[in-house]
Design a protein around this nucleic acid. Structure first.
Lengths: 219, 219
DNA sequence: GTTGTAAGATAGTGCCGGTATCCACGTTGT
DNA sequence: ACAACGTGGATACCGGCACTATCTTACAAC
């Protein structure tokens, strides 16, 4: 297929596809002539993955390139690629965490038996940064207990998700499945959590009118 | 305290505080003279909340203003404010969802007994949009079963979080606690989920060398 | 009084994710 | 054969966003 068809099939503006090609996010098509290039299903799938990460996950174009490079590097193991992707799609900028919070995080990791986590994992560092934020001047705190409770639920979810992955398909397809699944199901869960808040908080603070209006009194 | 002190105490550049004042995110201080205004702890707490939402939650300044307005509107109930905030801090742009996906979502909500969710809840609509994305051309699908599994875990989390909130404090403090808690604990959970992936996926695909290197073979 | 700094307003900056335009040429319909 | 269209490829441009810098005026503390 030609670029324009690729763009149309992925429902992405042609100019954007060209931009992605320029930026090296998308491998160039097979040139069939001086002003002609052919793209295949691989490109289409890749493009869809990139758009998912960008639109749902909010991943920056710079980081998308890193992801694309990792996906294309056949010398990396699947797990290796996944850790790299996890580092790169982690929200927020790189921040440093104080050692005290890192200790808290490591204690939680230890309690869960999560010894497969790399010490340099971005998620570990970011979590520590959040913990120190929580334990800072604000009204909230992050105790080992509540963190471990959270980790327990996260463990169930992560287990289930890892088990759900179809490991029979080949590398590239598997990776695409895992990468997109990771970001979109992350958001699915977050939305469900918010919906849960909405329901349970409503139940707790007394039911509003059935027509959907809300009492004006405070709680 | 004066603006400069406010800025310093919240660890925010003075120029940014002025910007927030300009944008109406932060109520003006009490004017004690033509070129003098006094700020108090309320302003400081508000500023901290805003920075949390912005830096951790990635909430845009426009939406921050909506949040601030809702927090200041004393005629709104706590629950009312929280739903508004939930709508506004939901990630991604407003999108339309096809009725079919909405039905899927509603079925899940029904299965959970979450009848406290407003039909116009942003989260409900966004979730439907995600579901239609998942059931689109990509390799992933969103069955009622897995969504309900997710919702079950989300329910546990949401219950616990609602129960954890300290309902004895007064309105403004309560709201600040809930708003910030919602966004930062959301992220805490997401990070833990990713860490869980890292561990469980590593366990599943065979342990790499203990020195942290990874085998070069694919899985 | 002098000096330092506050408040308030206005204009400018840097980045990011595209978007638009242009060109030279191959493909295609007739 | 020939003209019109659309292609790959390159370069320049744009709009939004979150700040940031500067400038003016005036008061407060010494």
């Amino acid at each position: 297929m030609l670029v324009s068809e690729l763009a149309e099939r992925a429902d992405v503006p042609l100019a954007t596809v060209k931009y992605y090609l320029r930026e090296g996010l998308l491998p160039a098509g097979e040139t069939t002539g001086p002003r002609r290039a052919e793209y295949d299903e691989c490109h289409l799938r890749r493009l869809r993955v990139l758009r998912m990460l960008r639109e749902v996950g909010g991943v920056s174009v710079t980081n998308l390139r890193l992801v694309a490079d990792a996906l294309d590097d056949e010398t990396r193991s699947v797990h290796d690629v996944m850790t790299l992707v996890a580092d790169v799609i982690a929200p927020g900028p790189t921040i440093e965490a104080d050692p005290e919070s890192l200790d808290v995080v490591d204690e939680v990791l230890g309690a869960m038996g999560w010894d497969g986590v790399r010490p340099q994992s971005m998620d570990r560092l970011r979590l520590a940064a959040l913990v120190s934020l929580l334990n800072g001047p604000g009204p909230l705190g992050a105790s080992i207990e509540v963190l471990t409770y959270y980790a327990g639920l996260a463990d169930q979810l992560a287990r289930a998700e890892v088990a759900l992955v179809d490991h029979t398909v080949e590398r590239s397809e598997l990776l695409e499945q895992m990468v997109t699944g990771s970001v979109v199901y992350g958001q699915v869960f977050e939305l469900l959590r918010q919906l849960g808040h909405e329901h349970h908080h409503q139940v707790r603070t007394g039911a509003p009118q059935p027509d959907g209006t809300v009492p004006t009194a405070h709680a």
